[in-house]
Nucleic acid binder design. Structure first.
Lengths: 116, 116
DNA sequence: GTCCCTCACCTCGCTACGCGAGGTTCGGGA
DNA sequence: TCCCGAACCTCGCGTAGCGAGGTGAGGGAC
């Protein structure tokens, strides 16, 4: 039974934005999963929380779709880590998604502010 | 099998925002389902599309949670229509959700624009 | 009177995503 | 040696949006 007074615009993430945020995190160069998550959390000033149960499925999803490619390497802490790099298709996808995002935000805000 | 090159920030709606948009539509007074959908589409300049399969489940969900109450009436076209009215709890919920929405949008945008 | 269009309601089953819980491996400090 | 924490992973759940597939009734056209 779901609590009746529960989820206020669910979770810590707006569903569908995680892929975009990951792609964006890779724009400056390859990174491994853990650091991508930290990067998103840091840049959002801890507002967005990237859980493991969302992160890894998302990375695999993106790799399957060909937006990113993974390779094994060593982290700054000398630990085995899987790095991901943006593919050209991924870069293109990122621009598509960000403009779509902007469009949707604008649309929602227009409904929210009937003034003007 | 899902098409590999398919969904760009899924659907026509950002998941989780529909409830908020419906509540907002009722802020000026009761309305029936069909007109709520049209209202959202119009104010968003047709960017947001509210499908029947999303609308009615959402209305029932909101009613179950006590944010809105429904009553039968007659539409402008002299047809049987179910009107919904915002409850005090729903009004409160709306302000909660809109501020949460603003917070999330700001957070995502900060990740998207590492500049500044 | 009948036909049909449109308004307005509804349900079902699918898919996708986020998430919590659970788990593994291994480097390095105490 | 012990344990912490980095870094990876999977599974099952809940929930939301959506397409398809309906139902019933008002009202104009003929």
């Amino acid at each position: 039974m779901p609590k009746p007074g529960a989820p206020p615009l669910q979770g810590d993430l707006l569903q569908g934005t995680l892929d975009m945020l990951i792609l964006q995190s890779l724009i400056l160069g390859p990174a491994h999963g853990h650091s991508i998550a930290h990067n998103i959390e840091r840049h959002s000033r801890e507002v967005l929380q990237v859980e493991h149960g969302s992160l890894y499925p998302a990375l695999h999803r993106l790799e399957t779709r060909g937006w990113i490619t993974g390779f094994w390497g060593t982290s700054e802490n000398n630990r085995r880590a899987k790095y991901y790099r943006l593919t050209p298709a991924g870069k293109k996808q990122l621009t598509t998604q960000t403009s779509r995002w902007a469009e949707l935000v604008q649309a929602v805000n227009r409904v929210l502010r009937p003034a003007e």
